[in-house]
Nucleic acid binder design. Structure first.
Lengths: 108, 108
DNA sequence: GGAATGTATTCCTGTCAAGGAATATGTGGG
DNA sequence: CCCACATATTCCTTGACAGGAATACATTCC
């Protein structure tokens, strides 16, 4: 898993942009207006999101319509799901681990 | 979705720590040794992960055993999955959107 | 071709976070 | 009780990054 993907999503304005683009594709100016962010900031954030593969732009006349890309979300889902397999086993594993480190323990 | 969660995971060392803790719970010193990071840095990273609810510590003698928490991963999964429902519809939606913005278009 | 629109880039500044080193805090063992 | 081990905290410096303002770039419409 790429830290850069999470890093891109870890900035509040960028996360807002992503969630907005989850509704439908948006042009840069529309994003700026919808979120109350100045256009240059939006462009900069889109650059970061673009470089980590989260969004892509389609040119349409003078505008650029940004939309989400599937793959990063699929990767995040796979990654996060891979941990969920552990929770049932987790308590046991913790118990096991604690039990194997009784060198420090004084038992009554 | 909390940007702070992604922000915590967006730092390479912290992501490494999380993936290590996906194997089993670890004590601070063990993490430091396994990843070749100095102990104070590990403690600082664990503080960040702890504050965003990604890990918890169990005290065991003089050591603190850190382990992952389920909820943040569940939230990430739900969040990322919610976007995956869009991909099939996405191309259509983009097409629709582009079609509704023909005001800029000069058609031959 | 020129004006106007839409977007990207640059420069600047302030803030924040990460790493290193040293040290404080805590806790169990003898 | 004091020591030693395990972990947390502090102080410092440096680099990265977000936001503001101004401007460059690109494209289309006339």
């Amino acid at each position: 898993m790429q830290a850069a993907t999470f890093s891109a999503l870890g900035e509040p304005s960028r996360l807002q942009i992503v969630e907005l683009l989850g509704l439908r594709p948006y042009a840069v100016g529309e994003i700026a207006e919808a979120l109350g962010i100045r256009q240059p900031q939006v462009s900069k954030h889109l650059r970061v999101l673009s470089e980590s593969g989260i969004v892509r732009a389609e040119r349409r006349a003078r505008r650029r319509i940004y939309h989400l890309q599937a793959e990063p979300f699929a990767e995040i889902t796979r990654w996060a799901e891979s941990f969920e397999a552990l929770w049932d086993a987790r308590l046991d594993a913790l118990g096991d681990y604690l039990r194997t480190t009784e060198d420090e323990e004084h038992r009554p």
